[in-house]
């Protein structure tokens, strides 16, 4: 399954932007676990996912072509 990954801030340095292949996953919880396995640095960071431009607050189904944004908090001003 191909998922479009959009990253922000420091996360862009860890995870590349663009289409990424996954197999055997069906929801955002599994996607999170897979991403943290592929990119262990992510597990130590604070971040939030958005699925098709809506914030993910509970486990949601993920289908082919979904757009997942991965956003860290910013503090600068």
């Amino acid at each position: 399954m191909e998922i479009d990954i959009v990253t922000f801030g420091k996360i862009t340095e860890i995870i590349p932007n663009g289409m990424m292949s996954f197999s055997g996953l069906t929801d955002t919880d599994q996607l999170k676990a897979t991403l943290e396995q592929r990119y262990p640095e992510l597990a130590g960071m604070k971040y939030k996912l958005a699925l098709n431009k809506t914030l993910v607050q509970e486990n949601k189904p993920v289908i082919e072509g979904a757009v997942i944004a991965i956003m860290p908090p910013f503090s600068g001003g």
């Binding site: 959009v6 958005a50 431009k53 809506t54 914030l55 607050q57 944004a69 956003m71």
Partner: peptide, 16 residues
Amino acid sequence: NYNLLDQSIYIIDILP
């Protein structure tokens, strides 16, 4: 979310 390098804007909806 605003990115100055490519002048892109990415708006997401926040849910509680």
